[in-house]
Design a protein around this nucleic acid. Structure first.
Length: 682
DNA sequence: GAGCACTGC
């Protein structure tokens, strides 16, 4: 009996060339003959066979059987996300109760790919084909064979089952996006592979970074006994390239750099409308502000110009927009109208605009990879055009080929604590696809140490460290939750924690600024933003979670429902820890003390003679200001503590609460001590 | 008197 289960699959007829450099290159045969599977699913089956990935079916199965890691490079529209898991199932990789896993970076992608595959397989979603995302598990253990999940969920699963023993194959999709959790997952899977040579990995990526990915996964087996066993797969990754189904997109550049990109994009839209045949337009701008301005400018032009321009339908798109307004984008345009969607980069990856006939317009210093992806949005259903508001020379000489991976530009605190919880002690020696700087790692380790989550040996503390690792939030917020128990206000703090982990709950609307400010004042608390959240939560509950109520109060209904979901998840977690849910009944002093227990390092003091609300941080004397979105903006209490810092032209404190300095020694005694009063502070 | 975007657990 062979030790490792191998599905029977014949060697493909196409030529496979063992590459000198170690990888395997695959040369496809021409179109393969296909047989329709008869009645019922014939049409779905024919659709499947028309996908570009279909003619690589045998090759993929062959490579997966022979190689521990297979890297599939293919543009969007090749069908790899939906087809490869099905091929694996058909070849027997889900037999004997094992799972085929396929990760996606985003929840929406998980849901839509899973339901598409369930439909193609002809089963009910949640049975043979299922998915798991946070707050939603649509799988049936024992029945599910193909499971789609976000990469973050798979990392969480490792805490229960470190070697992911249930899975026979794991496909990591959209690996080129290089999100923190994808990179972390790749590093962890590489580690698992050493202990589980039978596990097969498929890394799917849209760009040709395949070489570096291949180098990363090229592992040498330590145990030579194992290496000689012929039932083991080759550890050298195979690379396979699949063409996409996208149409050609004609690229245009400006001849001279533009000075005002907003005006230039407005002009370009108008010129496209004059000169180009029918087709919708997608414009990428940098932020909500610019989008609102551009919408206004275009609508003014439409009013001033002739009748022909009334055919333009201008629609903004960004995540803070209420759901109903976002849905407008998907409603088909009436005949003769031209839809102009003005969007943030949300339309680059997160939303697939299934509007036909898109023409695209790109702005801003982004990476070449990102620019290509945006242009690709114009060629999904038919050939399109892309107008870049920078010169070709700038594209070729100035723009970076790839964006910097998130791992190398963000806070590593959450990442490190998850690795620690998985028993990885040597963080500095962890093998990442893109290593963060040692300085960034040391900074994160220091934060965790000061919060009491790691001890002097950089090990998780008991119970605090292990509990924090189990809570799916920023460790600063998790610490706040666990401290709330000492102050008898866990009920209130869980609500605050849930608000702190969603985007802004406010929906801003231009033109009704006065009403918006009034709505905000209805909830504003003198203590600051955290207590304001408690007021909003109370109001939302009393309204019966009404969307009408949200609309009246300029609040985002979707976001508030998410707050409720997160809060419920947190309640379950702290109950598991044996922490009771207790309310402090409007005693906001204890609530603020619990907040300090998590955010004590972020205390700021108002500069005495400052006319413009300048604060300085206690730790580093950095100049900071209260963010205009805070209820304490222009109130400027003497002492404040902030939850996060955003840097634009100034450093702005977001989510701010007023505190008394005397509380610091009680809420964070290890960090603050009494000393002789400093006359400079009075 | 003025606010960068987007994911995820």
């Amino acid at each position: 009996m062979s030790r490792f289960w191998r599905p029977g699959s014949e060697k493909p007829t196409a030529a496979i060339v063992e590459d000198e450099e170690g990888g395997v290159l695959f040369l496809p045969t021409s179109t393969s003959s296909s047989s329709s599977s008869g009645f019922g699913y014939a049409s779905l089956e024919r659709q499947r066979q028309r996908l570009p990935v279909y003619k690589y079916r045998k090759a993929i199965l062959y490579l997966v059987e022979r190689h521990a890691t297979t890297i599939v490079v293919g543009e969007t529209g090749s069908g790899k996300s939906t087809q490869i898991p099905q091929y694996l199932k058909e070849a027997g990789w889900a037999e004997a109760g094992r799972l085929i896993g396929c990760t996606q970076p985003r929840r929406l992608a998980v849901q839509s790919v899973a339901s598409r595959v369930a439909e193609e397989v002809g089963v009910r979603l949640g049975e043979e084909v299922g998915y798991t995302i946070r707050f939603e598990d649509q799988t049936n253990p024992g029945t599910t064979m193909i499971k789609f999940l976000t990469d973050g969920v798979l990392i969480r699963e490792m805490m229960e089952d470190p070697l992911l023993t249930k899975y026979s194959v794991i496909m990591v999709d959209e690996a080129h996006e290089r999100s923190i959790s994808t990179d972390m997952l790749l590093g962890l899977l590489k580690k698992i592979q050493r202990r589980r040579p039978d596990l097969r990995l498929i890394i799917s990526s849209a760009t040709i970074e395949a070489r570096s990915m291949s180098t990363f996964f090229n592992i040498r087996r330590k145990n030579s006994m194992l290496a000689s066993a012929d039932c083991l797969p080759n550890t050298e990754p195979a690379i396979l390239s699949v063409e996409g189904k996208g149409y050609t997109v004609e690229i245009h550049y400006v001849e001279e750099p533009v000075s005002d990109y907003l005006q230039a994009s407005v002009n370009t839209v108008l010129i496209i409308h004059e000169k180009e045949p029918p087709g919708d337009i997608l414009v990428f701008l940098t932020g909500q502000d610019d989008i609102d301005t551009a919408v206004k400018m275009l609508n003014e032009e439409i009013q001033h110009r002739g009748r022909h321009y009334l055919d333009l339908l201008i629609l903004p798109l960004y995540s803070g927009l209420p759901r109903g307004d976002q849905d407008l984008i998907f409603t088909p345009t009436s005949k003769g109208k031209r839809k102009v969607v003005i969007s943030t980069n949300i339309a680059e990856t997160s939303l697939t605009l299934e509007i036909s006939d898109i023409e695209s317009l790109v702005v801003a210093p982004i990476s070449k990879a990102s620019a290509r992806q945006r242009a690709g949005r114009a060629g999904r259903v038919r050939p399109g055009k892309c107008f870049r508001l920078y010169t070709e020379e700038f594209y070729l000489k100035e723009m970076q080929p790839e964006g910097v991976p998130e791992m190398q530009r963000s806070n590593l605190v959450s990442c490190i604590i998850q690795l620690k919880a998985l028993g990885i002690d040597n963080i500095l020696g962890f093998d990442w696809p893109a290593s963060p700087s040692p300085e960034a790692m040391i900074r994160a380790l220091e934060v965790l140490y000061s919060l009491g989550i790691l001890d002097e040996d950089a090990k998780l503390t008991v119970p605090l460290g292990f509990q924090v690792a189990e809570i799916p939030l920023d460790p600063m917020i998790s610490k706040m939750i666990l401290s709330a128990n000492n102050f008898g206000c866990s009920d209130e703090i869980l609500t605050i924690a849930a608000f702190l982990s969603v985007q802004s709950v406010w929906v801003s609307m231009r033109g009704v600024k006065k009403e918006f400010d009034e709505a905000k004042l209805r909830f504003a608390a003198a203590e600051g933003d955290h207590v304001t959240f408690l007021n909003i939560y109370k109001g939302f509950h009393q309204s019966g979670k009404s969307s009408q109520w949200c609309y009246k109060n300029f609040l985002n209904h979707q976001t508030l429902k998410k707050v409720i979901d997160i809060r419920e998840q947190l309640v379950r977690i702290i109950k598991r820890f044996g922490i009771p849910l207790t309310s402090c009944n409007r005693d906001m002093e204890v609530v603020r003390k619990a907040i300090i227990a998590g955010a004590f390092a972020n205390v700021c003091h108002l500069e005495e003679y400052s006319q413009n609300g300048m604060y300085k941080t206690i730790r580093t004397s950095q100049e900071v200001y209260i963010h205009p979105s805070s209820v304490l903006f222009r109130v400027n209490p003497k002492w404040v503590i902030y939850q996060s810092l955003v840097s634009t032209d100034k450093h702005y404190m977001r989510n701010v609460i007023a505190i008394e300095p005397s509380w610091l020694t009680e809420a964070a005694p290890h960090f603050y001590q009494f000393r002789t009063p400093n006359p400079a502070l009075h």
